[in-house]
């Protein structure tokens, strides 16, 4: 087995292990939540015996570790259980929401990632010029404001004052693609503003770091134009940190949308999670949490693997 294969297998197994640990931690976390589901659903007037019967029916009277193993077994078979609040299958509840969240995240990612990398490259190319300072200032201002604030500012100017985009991003399975893109433009723009700065600045820093290498001076003395030095000579050697920060931000686009979804009433996983937590509907919380963790871990493992592959010393042995 080659060194590269070993590294990749190592990273993937570590990712799976992390997922298990996260699922256990989440279970414990939910156990620690104050309040009682039976009480919540049946109301304050329920008698002690009805509460007990209700708990027995849902299996809430079992010890925690048994419930965890039971739940884990179900997940491995693809069964996420039923929602305690609505009685519907969790997977059925999750499906359309998940599609919406992924749509919004992809929408933002497809614009934000290339934009950030290109801005970063240009900022490195025109280092310490007005362009560089301008881009940095704008990006930093955007990242310094909380995303709900950015969302409301966008609504105020683009929706209420200019009237170009709708205030609420209501989409469902009947909405066509162009319509969906139009309606969810504001939440997507909010997310873009929030993630671009981080990726852009990392790209700029990584490129500038590489620009100090002797092989960059060599390229200059070969008469290579500056933009070509940045793209052809510096970028391939700066990929590892850039890929990692892009992955981290893509993960954030999926995991961190909660607030943005609430601001724009976008029917995604974030909304679902908020509702589920407030109603103590732990099968739903568990499932959403597990999905978020899986996205986070997968993207990071992928980033690890791609940055390993971007190193010619590992790709081509001696």
């Amino acid at each position: 087995m080659s060194r590269l294969q070993k590294l990749v297998i190592g990273r993937v197994s570590l990712g799976i292990l992390t997922l298990f640990v996260v699922s256990a931690l989440m279970f414990v976390g939910i156990e620690l939540l104050p309040g009682d589901l039976a009480q919540q659903i049946l109301g304050q007037s329920a008698t002690e015996s009805t509460l007990a019967a209700f708990r027995a029916e849902l299996g809430l009277d079992q010890p925690a570790h048994l419930r965890y193993l039971d739940w884990l077994g179900g997940v491995l078979r693809g069964d996420f259980g039923t929602s305690l609040a609505s009685g519907r299958e969790v997977s059925e509840l999750l499906g359309p929401r998940l599609a919406n969240t992924m749509f919004l995240a992809t929408y933002a990612a497809v614009i934000a990632a290339p934009l950030a990398v290109i801005l970063g490259l240009l900022a490195a190319l025109w280092r310490n010029t007005l362009f560089d300072r301008g881009v940095n200032l704008t990006a930093l201002s955007a990242i310094s404001m909380p995303e709900f604030f950015v969302g409301y500012v966008l609504i105020l100017f683009l929706s209420i004052k200019a009237g170009v985009f709708p205030t609420l991003a209501r989409i469902d399975s009947a909405t066509g693609l162009w319509d969906a893109l139009y309606r969810s433009f504001l939440p997507a723009l909010t997310l873009i503003l929030v993630v671009v700065a981080h990726m852009m600045r990392m790209t700029r820093a990584a490129i500038i770091n590489v620009l100090a290498s002797p092989y960059i001076e060599m390229a200059r003395l070969k008469g290579v134009p500056r933009w070509r030095i940045i793209v052809q000579h510096a970028l391939p050697n700066a990929l590892a940190p850039i890929i990692n920060v892009v992955a981290l931000n893509l993960a954030y686009l999926v995991v961190g949308v909660v607030v943005v979804e609430v601001v724009f009433s976008y029917p995604g996983l974030g909304q679902l999670l908020v509702d589920a937590v407030s109603s103590r509907d732990f099968p739903v919380v568990q499932a959403v949490g597990l999905f978020f963790a899986a996205v986070y871990i997968t993207l990071n493992v992928l980033a690890d693997i791609i940055s390993i592959m971007s190193n010619p010393r590992l790709r081509h042995g001696r």
Partner: peptide, 16 residues
Amino acid sequence: IAYVAQSAAASFNPAK
């Protein structure tokens, strides 16, 4: 006008 540097190991781009 061309240039040959002291450390060839550092002056070749490792990615190409």
